[in-house]
Computed example of a mutant assay.
Amino acid sequence: MHRVRPTLRVLRDDLKLSLPSAQIPLNTISHPLLDKASDQYADPDTAHERIRAIDDVVLFKVKVQRWRGAVWMDDDPDAEVPTWIVAAGTREEGSSDDFYAALGAGGKSARARYNAAHDQALTTDTYSGHLLPTRDDHDRYRLEAATRFAVRLNFTIRDLARGSLHDGHEHAADFPGFRLGIQIRADDGNETYAAIRITGSAPANLTAMILGRVPGYAARPLLVTGASSR
């Protein structure tokens, strides 16, 4: 199931949660508001309630227990992350909409600051650009993707190397955009030969990354007898 992703600001400032290592994607963090948003926005065809107090961007409501949130949906069909939580807070006792009223008031204050600092004034009542995902948010997402790739590469290379050592044949696995094949032959423990085959579009430094992960390579260099990338 697709899960809604919090921005770094929401995670640290609004939800008061610590930033985990890159091995933990932010969209997998469990929190009542994040879980509710993921359930509520799993179906793109489901109707959602817009936050009317914000008029410069389209934000939607998500509510659970005392938690309130603002969800932004990226309309770029190629967006890496389509749905974000860009603001979060709690409802005060006896009030049903204080969070959204405060969000609107904050948007008006941000608009006033923006207009004071720019020659071309905004014509909307609010400004919410500071809430939307930043370069840091997208960099964090790509770091998580790179970390997942490295972890998968580690496990896959060990499995392929183990299989090839067992029967002497090439063992291969498919990755997005390329296919990786490894063949390792050992001569009674005297010399070990490794062949790396990369077919498809792959990062330029992939061969070095792979060799660095072949078991025993760091302690006892292997002789590469064949490598191809195309």
Rank of each mutant, 00 (worst) to 15 (best):
R12G: 12
A22V: 06
I24T: 15
P25D: 13
N27R: 15
L33G: 09
L34Y: 10
L34W: 07
D35L: 15
K36S: 09
A37Q: 06
Q40R: 06
Q40C: 03
P44I: 03
T46D: 05
A47C: 01
R50V: 13
R52I: 11
D55Y: 09
L59W: 10
K61T: 07
K61V: 04
R68M: 10
A70N: 10
A70M: 08
M73Y: 01
D75Y: 01
D76F: 02
D78P: 01
D78W: 02
E80Y: 04
P82H: 08
I85E: 07
V86K: 10
V86E: 08
A88E: 08
E92V: 08
E92Q: 14
S95A: 11
S96A: 09
D97N: 15
F99A: 12
F99D: 12
A101E: 15
A102Q: 15
G104P: 14
K108I: 09
A112V: 06
N115F: 03
A116C: 07
Q120A: 04
L122F: 02
D125T: 11
Y127M: 09
Y127D: 13
Y127W: 12
S128E: 10
G129Q: 06
L131H: 10
L131P: 08
D136I: 03
E144K: 08
A145S: 13
T147H: 12
A150W: 01
R152M: 11
N154Y: 04
R162G: 00
R162V: 00
G163D: 00
L165Y: 01
H166C: 00
H169M: 06
E170N: 02
D174W: 04
G177I: 08
F178G: 08
I182V: 13
I184G: 02
R185H: 07
A194P: 01
A195H: 08
A195R: 13
N205Q: 00
L206S: 00
A208E: 05
L211Y: 04
P215C: 11
A219L: 06
R220T: 08
